[in-house]
Nucleic acid binder design. Sequence first.
DNA 1: TCGAGATGTCATACC
DNA 2: GCGGTATGACATCTC
Length: 687
Amino acid sequence: MSQAMNFESPRTSVFTFQSSVHSSHVLRCLDEQRRKDILCDVTVIVENKSYRAHRSVLAACSDYFHNRVTNQVGQGLVITLPEEVTMEGFDPLLEFAYSAKLLFTKENIVEIHNCATILGFHNLEKACFDFLIPKFDSGKSINEIQKKVCCKNKCSKQKSLHAKSCCYLEEDDQAEDTNDETSSPVLKNRSNGLPSQNSTSEKDLPEACSPSCLEKHAQTHYSPLCPKYRKFQMACGKDRCSLDDCSLQMSANPIAVTNDGYASPCLPHTSDKNDRSEGNQCDQTLSETGNVPENEWASCMPATSKNSLTTGREVTPELGYDQPTAPPVAALDCCPVGPVDTAVTLERDEILGCGGDEGPADFNPSDSALSEMVQEGGADRSSVEREVAEHLAKGFWPDPCPSRTGTLLLDSEEQQDLGKAADFHWLKQLDLTASTGDCPFLRELGDGVQLPESEGMSQPEKSPYVSSINSGDDSDCDTEGDSESYNNERAREVHLPFPVEQISSMSRNDFQHMLRLQTLTREQLDFVHDVRRRSKNRIAAQRCRKRKLDCIVSLEGEIHQLKGEKEKLMQERDKLKRCKGETLQSLSTLCHKVCSEATLTPDQLEFLAQYSSPDCPASVLMTPTPSPSLSLHDQDPPIAGISLDSCPTEEPTTHLTPQLPHPTAPPSTHHGTTHCPTTEQNSPTST
DNA sequence: TCGAGATGTCATACC
DNA sequence: GCGGTATGACATCTC
């Protein structure tokens, strides 16, 4: 059945989220000191119970305490918390403050949330509770939650994968509502077949964002861009975007709680030859039956790793693996199609105590991939949020499925190697169609979160629907869907022993490794390579186009900037021209004055002309014919100041003859030099 | 019906 | 030599 059923388990479910915000060593010391009441300088009273603690720790973790202890001195500080704060809620929070681990049960999660809210506890962001509380809220079915958030806009177009996902899920929910959990022989069979499966199912998908949500979301990033490019930028803008794409289907498999109270992360399924079919069925099985024997949890984890993640598909006898009969959302949802790295599985088993017994399940995965993924984007988010999200995500999907589907056929050692080499592979398996809304943690992380644009993971081929989603347009789903269906059909024809989605989603090493392990026919090899090539090229084309668009946008900005500079230079030029005109005008006036007042002999004038620049009116006076001098004035003088300085008009002025004609008078044929440059001639306009 | 935009694919070059 | 990537060109689809 659903997780809700699991939540109904009479046993107490205890979960732990660990934050890496704190240094574990320091925290351990502090916690030890607190328990021994060493250096404790504050007493917190909650419901008549007192807790000794360090004010610095509390202040660091809680706004409330920060405010209360600020400016408070002395060792005897006693803080009585509001009555709204209960021991039930405060106790785990205090533990969290000192251990970075939050132990909670479904009974106290709400209380913890309330207390954390009242006390303003850091590191326990809204995302945690928004996601967790509904899971524990037996009053609301998961279906209700999903429908409310996700499927409001139930696929305006069925073309959209996302839309398909929603609809598919909803239908599934509905179908499930009408079906008794034991009424389906298939389910029974599945349950019997692989009881160790995780209990996640597509209906457990958390709030998946609608395509419109995604688009809106992404648009916030590209608002400065030309609207017509936004879609494309969204689709291709991995550089800056796409952790929008972080849609990570991780979200699709939130927390699954087994009867023994462990949070079951989205367990990956592999397409192991032997139990591929079983595995395919399994994920639905448990999720629908919700009935996992407690003592099987330990064995569940390793077994899970061998299960193919292909919920929503049918098992086709001829292929041995399921082909999608419905949008492969669930399949993609559930973490990667790949197998769980054996090492990871064991590690998790250790973490879980693998006995399946009680005790907090302390998920503290050390996967760098998720960390990187989470940190890569969302720079605008607090590191705390990121870390919390990261840890929560890890907690729910502790297994990054390192080697993904590609290693489904590998032995454990190989898987380990591949897992090390391909930390992001599991991400590649994730369907990017969903928005961050799918993952409450990553959604809260925000828009900036980006999936690494490593090869293969980018988009469509593994899930051809993806591009349609990324493009924000449902319409193109047809072609992609056709392509996908064609590929699937071809895969069926050539009896491809693994899902088509794996071909392009695998890393090169994984891919080659898989090919080595598989004995494929020539036809199969051709098909596989063809699919992979087209997928890679499709992604490359998207990147290429995005770069082009970015370049265009950049050039447009550059053009705008250059236009501004040009405008400034033009204004400066006009200003200089005006200045030059004024200078020439004053020079002309001076020249005429000198010529009219001074009495110069022709020898003197010739002498002046010899040592004066062409701009100097004195030289004009000596010019036999007026035309050359006019032409000189039509040219730009070198520099007005220099011309003036070089013009020795002062000395000879005293020798100028008074009978020199006035500039305004008709030119004298005798001198031929009566036309001193007028203002008009030297005006900028004339120039 | 036409054109623009989006996208997938192919061919080719380059690394 | 193989595989990945970049990119121009083309085809197809949608609006």
